[in-house]
Every structure is written in structure tokens, then in C-alpha cells.
Design a protein around this nucleic acid. Structure first.
Length: 308
DNA sequence: TTCCGGCGAT
DNA sequence: ATCGCCGGAA
């Protein structure tokens, strides 16, 4: 341990144990009940985490229940047609369709490379398609109580406000790890994310949510509830993303469609030789084909369908 | 406009 | 290493 490096946990309260106890007690006294909090099945937890990467939790519940009912375990998902999984994703408005492909792909990995049982460490979990540092830690924590401290944007906001941890990924990771009680990743990561979700949202609710960290919180003391910067995204309306999504949703409703019939269903101003015509549509479709979501049949007039 | 983590391009 | 893309409801 070098003494010249600035230590990220230097700003954490001295009585770490009291901080920990307060949060865990607060979480255990009351928290939102979600179906994935009622299970330690790694398959169910993994599915819920991938869905939650992009969709607000209250909207995930219905999709989650439908998904695990239709594909109850990793073998069932691995055996499914990809088009069915992508179609489900699209019809439940779950966003980024690539994630449906990742799920299907990773289910195959678990069956083929891990003998059908999920790996239990964050490092191994990250070998699965679509599973990065965040999801690996979440699954390892909630399924196996075997994770490191989870750092997502909620956690960053909490650490930034409460303990003035600088807006820096390494600093966040070190502070999160220093706070987490050894061997208690399941309850701890649940509790921290609950705090970020109900008490320390963009608009804080310190008193109404009875935040357990008020006595240590820098933001509560100063009234400065600013949060780490999040990059803004370009408009969705009229974007390429919107038309990609539309293609997948339409193809989910048909077996296959010739481009001449697909085009007008994607945009009303579709004219084969116009600015948004055959060429524009082909570009979009070849990207979707590269992503493994769409199959193109170029025997005669080109037709498109969801990839099996 | 805001929300989100993983991936692929650079 | 860093950054833009990806969906679509709220």
C-alpha cells in the first residue's frame, strides 16, 4: 500500500461499522418487494438484471414474470428460437434488442460451457455474452452472496453526495468496496441500491424516506445535492434507433417480409427511390443482420425476417 | 429531456 | 483508454 496515493476511502466516516449497520437495518425494516428478490435462482436473477439495465423496475416486473414463465430455466431459453426471444423483447418494450440476443447466446454458453449451471464468481460470469462488470457482480451477489460491491449510477450518486467521493470510476469502486461488509454482498448491494432508488434519487427524499445516513451525509449537511454528470443522448424521435426498433417489432409480427412491403410499414414517407428508400432500408437491415437479429434472403427480391 | 450497462469502433 | 450507440416509456 503506497502512502503517496490519494485514498478514495479517506473521506468515508470513521465509524464504518455504524454506517453499515444503519443501512442494513433500514433496508431490512422495509423495502420494495420485487419477484427477483424472492429467489436465489441465478437464472431468474440474471434475466431480471439484464432487463433492469434499461428499463425502470416497475415496468420490468410484468415482462420478467412473462419471460420466466415462458422460459423457466436456462435450458429452456437455450433451446428457444432466437426470433421468439427477440419478439418477446420487442413486444414487451424492453428496449435494446441486442440484449435479447445476448440472453439467448449466453443461455447457450451456460449449457455448453458450464454444464448447465451458472458460474458463481464475477470473473466467470463476465465471460457470458452481455454480462459486464455490473451484471456479473449483481448476479454473484444476489444468487450466490459472492459478489464485490456493485457500482452503478445509483451507487455513484449516493457516494458522491454522502461522502463526497470524486466523480471518478476508480474512486467509486474503492469507496464502494471499502464500505461493503465482507461476505455480505447480497444484503449490502440490495440495500445500497434501494437507498439510491427510494431515498437518494435525482430528487432526494432524505426525510420522507428516513435515509439512514443523514447524520453522516455531506449533501444533507450542506444542502448541495448535485450529482455526477451523465452524458446526454440525442433525440429518439426520428432517430436511427427508432427505426431499428420499428423493424424488429414489425418483423416480430410476420414470418418474413419483402423489403417493398416492409418499407412502408417502417416509415410513411418510404418511397423505393427516395431519400429514405431501398438503400436506406438495406443499410438499416444489414446492420441488424450484422448484429445477429435479422436474416436476409436475397434469392430473388430481398426478404427479411427475424433470425431463428 | 431522462434513464441504463455492455459493446464495438477508434 | 475513451466515447457513442442502442430502445422506448415517462
Amino acid at each position: 500500500m503506497s502512502t503517496s496515493e490519494p485514498s478514495a476511502d479517506g473521506s468515508l466516516p470513521e465509524d464504518t461499522e455504524a454506517v453499515r449497520r444503519a443501512l442494513v437495518a433500514w433496508y431490512e425494516a422495509d423495502h420494495r418487494a420485487y419477484p427477483w428478490r424472492e429467489t436465489t435462482d441465478p437464472y431468474a436473477i440474471w434475466v431480471s438484471e439484464v432487463m433492469s439495465q434499461q428499463t425502470q423496475l416497475d415496468r420490468v416486473v410484468r415482462a420478467f414474470e412473462g419471460f420466466v414463465e415462458r422460459w423457466p430455466d436456462v435450458e429452456a431459453l437455450a433451446a428457444a428460437d432466437r426470433s421468439e426471444v427477440v419478439g418477446f423483447w420487442s413486444s414487451h418494450s424492453l428496449g435494446y434488442n441486442n440484449r435479447a440476443r445476448y440472453l439467448h447466446e449466453a443461455a447457450g454458453q451456460v449449457v455448453e460451457e458450464f454444464d448447465g449451471s451458472f458460474p458463481e464468481t464475477p470473473a466467470e460470469l463476465q465471460e457470458l455474452q452481455g454480462v459486464g462488470p455490473y451484471t456479473a457482480n449483481a448476479v454473484a451477489s444476489f444468487a450466490f452472496n459472492n459478489g464485490d460491491a456493485v457500482v452503478d449510477t445509483n451507487v455513484k450518486r449516493v457516494l458522491y453526495r454522502a461522502f463526497s467521493v470524486p466523480d471518478d470510476d476508480t474512486a467509486f469502486e474503492e469507496a464502494a468496496e471499502a464500505l461493503m461488509p465482507d461476505g455480505e454482498s447480497r444484503v449490502w448491494n440490495n440495500a445500497v441500491m434501494e437507498l439510491g432508488g427510494v431515498a437518494c434519487e435525482k430528487t432526494p427524499a432524505c426525510d420522507t424516506a428516513e435515509c439512514p445516513w443523514r447524520e453522516w451525509c455531506d449533501a444533507y449537511a450542506t444542502g448541495d445535492f448535485s450529482a455526477p454528470d451523465v452524458p446526454t443522448q440525442s433525440a429518439f424521435e426520428g432517430s436511427r434507433r427508432q427505426f431499428r426498433g420499428r423493424v424488429v417489432r414489425v418483423l416480430g409480427e410476420y414470418d418474413s417480409l419483402p423489403l417493398s412491403e416492409l418499407g412502408p410499414r417502417i416509415r410513411v414517407d418510404y418511397t423505393p427511390d427516395g431519400e429514405h428508400g431501398r438503400e436506406w432500408l438495406s443499410d438499416l437491415l444489414s446492420d441488424l443482420a450484422d448484429d445477429g437479429l435479422v436474416a436476409l434472403d436475397t434469392d430473388g427480391e430481398t426478404t427479411a425476417r427475424l433470425r431463428q
